[in-house]
Amino acid sequence: VKVFRALYTFEPRTPDELYFEEGDIIYITDMSDTNWWKGTSKGRTGLIPSNYVAEQ
């Protein structure tokens, strides 16, 4: 598990995607895809765009 911080707010387009706000901490559990990672924030899990976060 790696810890990342959201650089921007992300509004999901599908139920599989995770909503998060700029500054949120996201725990990444799967980075197997280059563009979409699986992450958890505020008790919810979903896909996030990798270019919206920076490693802490």
Score class of each variant (00 low, 15 high):
52 Y>W: 07
13 R>M: 11
1 V>S: 12
12 P>E: 02
35 N>Q: 14
46 G>T: 01
19 Y>K: 10
31 M>V: 07
3 V>S: 07
22 E>H: 07
40 T>C: 15
4 F>T: 04
15 P>M: 09
13 R>P: 04
21 E>P: 01
38 K>G: 05
55 E>K: 09
30 D>C: 06
21 E>K: 10
56 Q>G: 12
17 E>R: 05
2 K>A: 09
38 K>C: 15
54 A>H: 10
17 E>W: 07
41 S>A: 12
47 L>V: 07
36 W>D: 01
42 K>T: 06
24 D>W: 14
4 F>V: 11
27 Y>G: 03
15 P>N: 10
33 D>P: 05
56 Q>P: 10
37 W>I: 02
44 R>F: 08
28 I>L: 04
8 Y>G: 06
30 D>N: 07
30 D>R: 03
4 F>L: 04
40 T>Y: 15
53 V>R: 01
6 A>F: 02
32 S>F: 07
22 E>G: 06
25 I>V: 11
46 G>I: 02
29 T>F: 15
17 E>S: 05
29 T>W: 15
17 E>H: 12
47 L>C: 08
24 D>N: 04
29 T>S: 12
33 D>C: 06
43 G>Y: 03
20 F>D: 00
10 F>R: 12
29 T>A: 06
10 F>Y: 15
7 L>C: 11
44 R>P: 02
24 D>K: 00
29 T>E: 09
15 P>R: 10
36 W>N: 03
26 I>W: 01
5 R>L: 12
55 E>W: 11
42 K>E: 08
5 R>G: 02
13 R>E: 09
35 N>Y: 15
36 W>S: 02
9 T>D: 10
51 N>T: 12
38 K>R: 14
30 D>T: 03
26 I>T: 07
28 I>Y: 01
14 T>I: 08
39 G>V: 03
16 D>Q: 12
39 G>P: 00
38 K>W: 15
50 S>K: 10
12 P>H: 03
4 F>G: 03
48 I>E: 01
49 P>V: 02
22 E>T: 10
3 V>C: 14
1 V>L: 13
42 K>I: 03
14 T>S: 14
42 K>S: 11
8 Y>L: 10
15 P>Y: 08
51 N>P: 06
18 L>I: 08
16 D>Y: 13
15 P>Q: 11
1 V>I: 13
18 L>D: 01
42 K>F: 08
30 D>S: 06
43 G>M: 04
54 A>D: 08
11 E>T: 14
20 F>W: 01
9 T>M: 06
37 W>R: 01
30 D>H: 06
52 Y>Q: 05
33 D>F: 04
4 F>H: 04
32 S>D: 08
18 L>M: 11
22 E>Q: 13
9 T>E: 04
42 K>W: 06
47 L>M: 12
1 V>D: 09
24 D>G: 02
28 I>E: 00
43 G>C: 07
32 S>W: 06
16 D>S: 11
50 S>W: 07
47 L>H: 04
54 A>T: 15
19 Y>W: 10
2 K>S: 08
2 K>G: 09
53 V>H: 02
35 N>T: 13
44 R>E: 06
50 S>R: 12
12 P>D: 02
13 R>L: 10
48 I>N: 00
2 K>Q: 09
6 A>Y: 03
51 N>I: 09
35 N>C: 15
43 G>D: 06
15 P>T: 10
5 R>V: 15
24 D>H: 02
34 T>K: 15
13 R>Q: 13
17 E>Q: 15
34 T>H: 13
41 S>Y: 09
27 Y>C: 13
12 P>F: 06
51 N>Y: 10
36 W>M: 08
54 A>R: 13
54 A>K: 13
41 S>I: 14
33 D>V: 06
3 V>G: 06
6 A>V: 03
53 V>Y: 02
12 P>N: 06
7 L>P: 01
11 E>P: 03
48 I>M: 03
23 G>R: 03
31 M>S: 08
11 E>N: 14
24 D>M: 05
43 G>A: 04
38 K>S: 09
54 A>V: 15
30 D>Q: 06
11 E>S: 13
7 L>H: 02
8 Y>F: 12
40 T>F: 15
48 I>H: 00
18 L>A: 02
14 T>D: 09
2 K>Y: 11
19 Y>N: 07
25 I>C: 09
17 E>T: 04
35 N>F: 15
17 E>Y: 12
51 N>F: 10
12 P>M: 09
50 S>F: 06
28 I>M: 08
39 G>K: 01
11 E>I: 15
27 Y>I: 13
12 P>T: 05
21 E>V: 10
25 I>N: 03
41 S>M: 12
14 T>L: 10
56 Q>V: 15
16 D>P: 04
41 S>C: 15
3 V>H: 07
39 G>D: 01
51 N>S: 14
39 G>I: 03
43 G>V: 02
55 E>C: 10
18 L>Q: 00
18 L>T: 01
56 Q>F: 15
26 I>F: 03
5 R>W: 10
50 S>G: 04
23 G>H: 05
34 T>R: 14
44 R>K: 13
24 D>F: 04
54 A>Y: 12
20 F>P: 00
15 P>E: 13
6 A>T: 01
37 W>F: 10
42 K>C: 11
8 Y>W: 11
56 Q>R: 09
43 G>Q: 04
49 P>H: 06
43 G>N: 07
52 Y>I: 07
2 K>I: 08
39 G>C: 01
34 T>V: 14
35 N>V: 14
14 T>A: 11
52 Y>E: 02
6 A>W: 03
38 K>N: 07
16 D>V: 08
46 G>Q: 00
47 L>N: 06
27 Y>F: 14
23 G>M: 03
20 F>Y: 02
32 S>V: 10
32 S>P: 07
49 P>W: 05
46 G>V: 02
13 R>H: 10
52 Y>H: 07
26 I>N: 00
21 E>D: 07
6 A>C: 04
26 I>V: 08
37 W>N: 00
7 L>R: 06
31 M>E: 04
39 G>S: 01
29 T>G: 05
55 E>M: 12
9 T>P: 06
